[in-house]
Design a protein around this nucleic acid. Structure first.
Length: 262
DNA sequence: CTTGTGCCCTGACCGC
DNA sequence: TGCGGTCAGGGCACAA
């Protein structure tokens, strides 16, 4: 589930519920969820801190506290944060609990790929993974010219390029398909083959798809990303009704309409 | 620079 | 019902 819009929604949830609050309990149910430092040190240093900022960078979540401490989290495939009363039943895949008064913030992750690091706030950008991230696609710096600069010399498939976090941060498999559908581009087009009008469509599709995703997820709570998805409706193109095709590109399955996307 | 592969984990689903 | 294979909205290391 978690791509840029999903992580943005989680960040908003945590911001609303944790900003200015003091963490009085930290319970780690699965030690592997904490990458650094040790689980014991993670819990000890976090307890008693007040949450000052919650932000997102690519698909990473940043919770910064007083005392120059930041939790950097990644949801990977199945991670999620939920906010529930502390008396609520504990879901079996709960990996970590951050307690604030009568409320629990719980990190739940079926596949256990997700992870958290506790680092010095002024060094958070240097963390592995975060350090390599490319441009934020919803920032003012992400212009058509920047996109052209990122893609124009590349012979890789545009879908594989969209998935590269070191180029553009935050696009995952579902949004990449959605973006290419909106831009009417075949996922196997190379970056270098894109003409100016196509780059313009792609830029527009990246921004509007991500923004729409955020708008759809940002009401209350969270939804499963079922609102925009070219794969919906039994594998049929929502535009021309012809069957969607699949192909493996960049090691991931791409869904696309060969009639509408060229 | 590029693509491909395996791996980290767990569970749902499908065909036999 | 049981079993095995396949696949999954991520990202890394490594090889060719």
């Amino acid at each position: 589930m978690p791509e840029l819009p999903d992580v943005e929604a989680v960040a908003g949830l945590l911001r609303r519920r944790l900003m200015g609050r003091r963490i009085d309990r930290v319970r780690i149910l699965d030690h592997a969820v904490v990458r650094s430092p040790s689980a014991a040190a993670f819990a000890r240093r976090l307890r008693g801190r007040t949450v000052r900022h919650v932000s997102r960078r690519g698909k990473y979540l940043m919770l910064s506290m007083d005392g120059n401490l930041t939790v950097v989290g990644h949801l990977r495939m199945t991670g999620d944060f939920v906010v529930v009363p502390k008396i609520a039943p504990v879901h079996p895949h709960t990996r970590l609990v951050i307690g604030v008064d009568a409320t629990d913030v719980r990190f739940i992750d079926q596949r256990r790929f997700g992870h958290l690091d506790l680092v010095a706030t002024d060094r958070a950008a240097e963390l592995d993974g975060v350090r390599r991230l490319g441009i934020e696609p919803l920032s003012p710096e992400f212009t058509q010219a920047r996109l052209r600069g990122l893609l124009q010399e590349r012979r890789g498939a545009v879908k594989a390029l969209l998935l590269r976090q070191d180029l553009i941060a935050g696009i995952g498999n579902i949004y990449a398909d959605e973006i290419l559908f909106q831009a009417r581009l075949s996922p196997d087009r190379t970056g270098a083959s894109l003409r100016p009008a196509e780059l313009r469509r792609l830029h527009r599709a990246i921004v509007t798809s991500l923004r729409r995703g955020i708008a759809a997820l940002s009401g209350r709570g969270r939804t499963i990303g079922d609102l925009i998805d070219v794969r919906e409706r039994g594998g049929v193109c929502p535009r021309c009704r012809r069957p969607l095709h699949t192909a493996t590109i960049g090691g991931r399955t791409a869904y696309f309409c060969p009639h509408c996307q060229r």
